[in-house]
Amino acid sequence: MFLNKLCPNDEEEEDPTTEQLPPVHPMHNSEQQWDQMAPVLGMKFTNPSELKHCLTNYVVKYGYDLWYEKNDKYRLLVKCCKGKEPICPFRLWASWMQEERTF
């Protein structure tokens, strides 16, 4: 049922009695222990500093090398291993949400 909502079949008509599922984006828990912090796709933060703190803890635990390409109060672009081989495709882009006060 869930996958049918995500990828509806054009040949079938939608059932009007079926409820639409809201998108799920977890809120970061700043009270979590440092070694348990892990960024998740779509995760919401109260401000850019909270996201950078979470990333720093994650990097320390797993030994990643991150490069802050853009880092200001409106946006954050983080890449993996700038200028190192092998090239890592990781990229994190974050900015303020338009409809709510989360980053």
Results as ranks from 00 to 15, higher is better:
N57I: 01
T56C: 07
K82L: 00
L76F: 03
N4P: 06
P48A: 01
M1I: 04
K44M: 08
W67N: 03
P26A: 12
L6F: 10
T102D: 08
L66G: 01
N9Q: 10
T102H: 11
Y74D: 15
F103L: 07
C81Y: 06
Q36K: 15
T17I: 03
H53I: 12
L77S: 07
V40L: 11
K73C: 06
E12Y: 12
K61E: 09
C7T: 09
V40N: 06
M43Y: 07
Q98T: 12
Y64Q: 03
R75F: 00
M1Q: 14
Y58R: 05
I87W: 03
N9H: 08
W96Y: 14
K84V: 03
K82C: 03
R101D: 15
G63I: 04
S95M: 06
W93A: 02
M43P: 09
K70Y: 01
E100P: 01
V60K: 14
K70W: 01
F2T: 13
P48K: 05
G83T: 06
P39T: 09
A94L: 05
P8Y: 11
D15K: 11
W67D: 12
R101P: 13
P26Q: 11
L55Q: 03
P48Q: 04
Q32D: 14
E19G: 10
E69Y: 00
E12W: 13
M97R: 10
C88T: 05
K82S: 05
P86T: 05
P23T: 10
C80T: 02
W67I: 00
D65A: 00
R101W: 04
E99K: 15
Y74T: 02
Y68C: 04
L21F: 10
G63V: 04
E100K: 10
Y58P: 03
Q33S: 13
P89V: 05
V59H: 02
A38F: 08
P39F: 02
E69A: 02
D65R: 08
L77K: 08
L41I: 12
E13W: 12
Y74I: 01
D10F: 00
R91W: 04
G42Q: 04
I87P: 07
L3M: 11
A94I: 06
